[in-house]
Design a binder for these strands. Structure first.
Length: 848
RNA sequence: GCCCGCGUGGUGGAACGGUAGACACAGGGGACUUAAAAUCCCUAGCCGCACGGCGUGCCGGUUCAAAUCCGGCCGCGGGCACCA
């Protein structure tokens, strides 16, 4: 073989790695372990470049750590439950189970040629009964610990299809299939008590030093701890039982600017009025239109209804405020009731202007300032302002000071108390769908809601279900619901809700440490392998998946399934950027968007029909938008190493990368060149031993740069250093021995990124064994030292000249040289500089 | 609407507050070849013949020195609890 031929060598090396069980994770107490995990994929059926990017990054880390002497765990599995399988069954027939396992087989077959260093012996899918049965066992344990409960919660209801919709299935307030306006409807649902852990989940963020700051910030904001005042208004004209209206406010300092009280449409008082007052009922029905997402609620037009009820102001019982029902008040936050201070809250101001309610300024800027007009005055709470409506603090005070004083005042006078609130709500896990983990609970007429016996687990999904109509197939299955009560033995009915798929992905990392254990986890294996040392995945999971996992690890610890050290399961987190691509869209007869895969499109039109497509600028690659690129064709054309090299080049890992086809060929060319450099080690050039030192210095420089690049998750910089090193080898006329040494090191440094090519070169140049098992090279510090340094000379911050001086030259000597420099002499024209700044080894700035 | 990011040549990007544009892609020129492919060499931010000037989304500030720090805008992206 005289040229780079990945189609021949890549399968060969993959077979060699398999035969030697190179990637099998060993519980070896003699060695330090390293657990690297990439967020496992949903088995859509096709891998895309986002997967390639994610798994290649993880693979670089896994292979690098392995060569540094760690016992590495690098597993792979499938996040296999979820809606797409049911949608496929509805659209194309077939069964979610067959669809899912077929997709898994396809995707595994697409992933294997990438040459990832994965321990495939630990593979599992969350839809395996062996997995979800253990999840059911933990659910039962958590029930016993009081971490699970039921309550009413709102869902998106499609009144035509008579089914619950996911937020994703609500488009512009309408059902995606029926097109009918969606309503908010209450159902009894299962919840995890994540809010019990709100404080802990917030405080523990500080300890996650190796998580991106932005993720910790997002989680902190999501948990949303706030300090405020809770107090009760005395009502006038309210139905019996509603003599008091509890409200929560984070701005009690604006109490004298109150102009109305507002309650959520789901507030008990609103419901009481709804029952007797048709006008209220009509208004609330209006509020229930549209989806349940916070986005839908926040962006909907703000509407209100004056109930006619009034409340007495706590600071002045003669002052009465009207009580409105408003669609932007959330029942889930605080008490579901607020008072509005329009002058200092934009939303309240818009509402007040719309309905002609009073606007009273509480404070103005410390200097000057005018009464509020169209824009509410909302300064930072730390800003000092001039108070017009202070009632327990000085005229000049910050918001923070005023809030503290207002709470103290309320507590002293006894009309309210300081309260800490969280935005975080309990985690609703009920799904009225088939393809999920059944909630292992039985409804008995006499015993109530009872957990299934553990020996009856897993509660398996029935296979004989149909998807010819909307709704939950478990609900309409003829026999599956029938069972006997575990407590009294009477006839009973099984719970037909299944679990949110976020539950499945909240503990898979722990299961990988003992994937075949007969209990959810195995203590010894957990103890050795936990925590995940490096977790890698998309930023889109920054809040929900990661927060749920952090909660679940705590719940698993509380139920004895994880050691205390694992309550924060991910030591380090890296959030990769997304792979983006253009989106191709047409519209169907109803004007709804239809998306098309890149390979279905040619020259701006559908290949099949010639219909013109709209090209929407690059966005995240997603199944629903179908803007996915198929890596398989890249691999078959150029080989896995080219795909891997390309995806690591150029773009920093945390940033989005737009996929362009043009780069793949260039990557292939470079790998071919490197192969050729190794092949021609003995034959290329005359060989001049006086150049050896320069080449070896470049080699050590590269070792240092590549190591730093990998350690610092800057793979693009590691790649750049390897490009530079290839250039250096190519230009060098060093002796054959030095070049051989350089290329062996090149193979080692490239092996985490292009493992097959590295084995090619390693074998060609007589390296011992597999490069995959060779120890990582170390840079010799002595070889990194430069004797002289070039200093740019700035004059007033602009670069005008430079001098080259010995690295060790004392500062005074450097200054002397600078002042003697031709350019500097000319500019100074006999005068002396105002200032001379010498940053050793860096720069000189002459200020004149 | 709310929370969080990002913005540097034609393109992807590099740059402990210290020479802006490393390393690449695309481009231009050349060598080799009957020719092409492949490969190799040179070139290259923008304006200008040049001296030089201008340049990191926009405006302002801090500093001897700002892509980097601070304030205010604009644009793009992610998340918003039932997409995964």
């Amino acid at each position: 073989m005289s040229r780079y031929e990945p189609s021949l060598t890549e399968p060969k090396w993959q077979a060699a790695w398999d035969a030697a069980h190179v990637f099998r994770a060993h519980h070896d107490p003699q060695r330090p372990k390293y657990y690297v995990l990439e967020m496992f994929p949903y088995p859509s059926g096709r891998i895309h470049m986002g997967h390639v990017r994610n798994y290649t990054m993880g693979d670089v880390v896994a292979r690098y750590k392995s060569s540094c002497g760690f016992s590495v765990l690098h597993p792979m599995g499938w996040d296999a439950f979820g809606m797409p399988a049911e949608n496929a069954a509805m659209e194309r027939g077939g069964h979610p189970k067959e669809w899912t396992y077929g997709n898994i087989a396809d995707m595994r077959a697409q992933m294997k040629p990438l040459g990832l260093s994965i321990d495939w012996s630990r593979e599992f899918a969350t839809c395996d009964p062996e997995y979800y049965g253990q999840q059911q066992a933990m659910f039962i344990d958590m029930m016993e610990k009081g971490l699970v409960y039921r309550k009413a919660a709102v869902v998106n209801w499609d009144p035509v299809d008579m089914t619950v919709l996911a937020n994703e299935q609500v488009i512009d307030g309408k059902g995606w299939r029926s097109g009918a306006p969606v309503e908010r409807r209450e159902l009894t649902q299962w919840f995890f008590r994540i809010s019990d852990y709100a404080e802990d989940l917030l405080e523990a963020l500080d300890g996650l030093k190796d998580w991106p700051e932005k993720v910790r910030l997002m989680q902190a904001n999501w948990i949303g701890k706030s300090r405020g005042l809770q107090f009760a208004f005395e009502t006038v004209g309210a139905p019996a039982g509603h003599e008091r209206l509890e409200v929560y406010t984070t701005r009690p300092d604006t109490l004298l600017g109150a102009s109305f009280a507002a309650i959520a449409p789901d507030h008990p008082l609103a419901k009481a009025l709804e029952a007797t007052n048709p006008a209220v009922a009509a208004f609330i029905a209006e509020c229930r239109k549209g989806g349940t997402s916070e986005e839908a609620i926040e962006t909907a037009e703000k509407i209100g209804f004056d109930t006619g009820i009034r409340v007495k102001h706590p600071l002045d019982p003669t002052w009465e405020l009207p009580v409105w029902i408003a669609n932007f008040i959330l029942m889930d936050y605080g008490t579901g009731a607020i008072f509005g201070c329009p002058a200092h809250d934009q939303r309240d101001l818009d509402f007040a202007r719309k309905y002609g309610l009073a606007v009273t300024d509480c404070f103005l800027p410390a200097e000057g300032g005018e009464p509020v007009g169209k824009t509410a005055f909302v300064p930072m709470k730390s800003e000092r302002v001039r108070w017009l409506k202070a009632y327990a603090w000085p005229e000049l005070a910050t918001g923070e000071e005023a809030i503290a004083a207002a709470i103290a005042h309320a507590e002293a006078k006894g009309y309210g108390r300081g309260v800490t609130n969280f935005r975080l709500r309990d985690w609703g896990i009920s799904r009225q769908r088939y393809w999920g983990c059944p909630i292992p609970v039985i409804h008995c007429a006499t015993c109530g809601v009872v957990a299934e016996r553990k020996e009856n687990l897993p509660v398996r999904l029935p296979d004989d279900v149909t998807f010819d109509q909307p709704g939950n197939p478990l609900d309409r299955h003829p026999t599956w619901r029938d069972c006997t009560c575990p407590t009294c033995g009477a006839k009973a009915r099984r719970e037909t809700d299944t679990m949110d798929t976020f539950v499945d992905s909240s503990w898979y990392y722990a299961r990988f440490t003992a994937p075949r254990a007969a209990t959810p986890t195995d203590a010894a294996e957990c103890d050795y392998w936990m925590n995940v040392d490096q977790y890698i995945g998309g930023v889109e999971h920054a809040i929900l998946h990661l927060l749920y996992s952090r909660f679940f690890a705590r719940a698993m610890h509380a139920t004895g399934h994880l050691p205390a050290k694992a309550i924060e399961p991910f030591n380090a987190l890296f959030t990769q950027g997304m792979v983006t691509h253009e989106i191709y869209m047409t519209r169907d007869a109803q004007g709804r968007p239809v998306y098309h895969l890149p390979e279905e499109v040619e020259n701006g039109a559908l290949k099949a029909t010639g219909q013109t497509v709209d090209i929407i600028p690059s966005a995240k690659m997603s199944k629903s938008k179908k803007n996915v690129v198929d890596p398989v064709s890249i691999v078959t054309t150029f080989g896995a190493d080219t795909a891997r090299w390309f995806i690591l080049s150029d773009s920093p890992p945390e940033r989005d990368v737009e996929w362009t086809a043009s780069g793949a060929e260039a990557a292939f060319k470079h790998l071919s060149r490197v192969w050729r450099l190794a092949y021609e080690v003995d034959t290329r050039g005359a060989g001049d031993a006086t150049q050896d030192m320069a080449l070896l210095k470049a080699m050590h420089r590269t070792i240092a740069d590549v190591t730093a690049g990998i350690e610092g998750f800057a793979f693009n910089k590691a790649v750049a250093a390897l490009y530079a090193f290839a250039n250096a080898v190519q230009k060098s006329d060093a002796s054959a021995g030095a070049k051989r040494q350089a290329m062996l090191t090149m193979a080692q440094l490239m092996s985490p990124m292009t493992p097959h090519l590295a084995e090619d070169i390693w074998a060609m140049l007589g390296g011992a064994g597999l490069v995959a098992q060779a120890a990582w090279p170390k840079a010799d510090p002595a070889m990194l030292v430069e004797d002289s340094v070039t200093l740019p000379i700035q004059i007033n911050g602009k670069r005008r000249a430079e001098i080259t001086v010995p690295k060790t030259m004392p500062q005074a000597e450097v200054e002397k040289l600078v002042l003697a420099d031709e350019t500097v002499v000319k500019v100074l024209a006999g005068g002396t500089p105002k200032k001379l700044i010498v940053v050793p080894g860096r720069i000189v700035n002459v200020v004149i």
